[in-house]
């Protein structure tokens, strides 16, 4: 057979989620050392951006791995935030921190599974699916406004900082440093779990759906079910991020479920690169913190700049920062003898 003329791994950056483990270890090590050198507000606020990073990963899982875009991530985020609030503020006859986290994750999972099941098994087109996820964000925001006896409406809902009881010791999550490390540990665990997932049999099938869904179905794979499960997992992770956000910031309000916030998540992931989980995590952290910082200084110009960066990314750097870097590394490797 004829030899192909193109270098072997010239395009392999699109292929796998592998090869990012080293980057991830470096990132988490830096984050772990950070509070040793810096203190003050930034140690308080960075965990919030890491949680946004988890939200970004929930989208990368869906968009990057499976090829399905969602404008509903903020909807799930808010579902998680309100669920943990209701379960810990005594407004329900049962509750508690761990039950609350489980409830948040389950709720995100079930809502996504339900939507996914009906849409994917009916074979709706991707564009239509995006519209439905957009509608989900709107519905969640509206519900959190209208159900004010439960949610506090526009006034929002306050959430108590929890104390983790490990039996032998109790970690009181009030001071910044313990909070920082608890959130960092949670984020690292979530990352490791998702990374393992992308490399599992199931993760590979999702990659196949992204690459060529019709081919996969024609080999006997029930793609609709796999897409449903991917969306459900993504919803669960986004809801978990929402619950962590609620606990960390002590407050949730309708705007965290809205279309605007959902769009922001899409922008973080597009700019950072949806092909890599660690890229999405970093995108969530960096773009959202820049966004908050610069929007306070120069609100109008920042929005404009972010919009421009987004358009440039979509037009010229489809893979975002991570994708461009991976391609650069791959080309360097294949250029060496």
């Amino acid at each position: 057979m004829i030899e192909p003329r193109v270098p072997v791994s010239a395009h392999s950056h699109r292929t796998r989620f592998g090869g990012e483990a080293k980057v991830a270890i470096a990132v988490f090590a830096c984050l772990a050392l950070f509070p040793l050198f810096v203190s003050g507000y930034i140690v308080y606020i960075l965990p919030q951006y890491m949680i946004f990073g988890v939200l970004a990963m929930s989208l990368a899982l869906l968009w990057g791995v499976t090829g399905i875009l969602s404008f509903g991530q903020a909807g799930f985020f808010a579902i998680g935030g309100y669920a943990i609030g209701l379960m810990t503020n005594g407004s329900l006859p049962f509750g508690g921190l761990f039950l609350g986290l489980i409830a948040a994750v389950l709720l995100g999972y079930l809502v996504a599974a339900l939507i996914g099941y009906f849409l994917f098994s009916a074979g709706v087109r991707d564009a239509y699916f995006v519209l439905v996820t957009l509608a989900l964000s709107i519905v969640v925001e509206q519900l959190s406004v209208s159900q004010s006896q439960l949610t506090g409406g526009w006034n929002g809902m306050f959430i108590m900082r929890p104390t983790i009881d490990l039996g032998f010791t109790r970690i009181e999550l009030f001071a910044d440093i313990p909070v920082y490390y608890v959130v960092l540990a949670a984020v690292a665990l979530i990352y490791a779990g998702l990374y393992a997932f992308t490399r599992s049999r199931f993760g590979k099938v999702l990659t196949g759906i992204r690459e060529n869904e019709m081919r996969l179905v024609s080999l006997g794979v029930p793609a609709a079910l796999h897409k449903t499960a991917a969306f459900a997992l993504s919803g669960a992770v986004a809801a978990l991020a929402g619950a962590l956000y609620g606990l960390h910031s002590g407050f949730v309000s309708p705007s965290i479920g809205g279309v605007l916030f959902s769009t922001e998540v899409v922008v973080w992931v597009a700019i950072a690169g949806r092909s890599s989980l660690i890229g999405a995590l970093l995108g969530g952290i960096i773009v959202s913190s820049l966004s908050n910082y610069l929007s306070a200084i120069t609100p109008t110009y920042w929005q404009l700049a972010l919009g421009l960066v987004f358009i440039l990314t979509i037009a010229f750097f489809r893979g975002g920062v991570a994708g461009t870097l991976e391609r650069f590394v791959a080309n360097r490797r294949s250029a060496q003898p």
Binding site: H11, S12, R14, T15, R16, K204, V205, T207, G208, R210, E211, N212, R215, L216, L219
Partner: peptide, 13 residues
């Protein structure tokens, strides 16, 4: 085929 995947990954799917 799955264009973005290697031949091996194709068959693996």
């Amino acid at each position: 085929v799955f264009l973005g995947l290697t031949a091996r990954e194709n068959i693996e799917l």
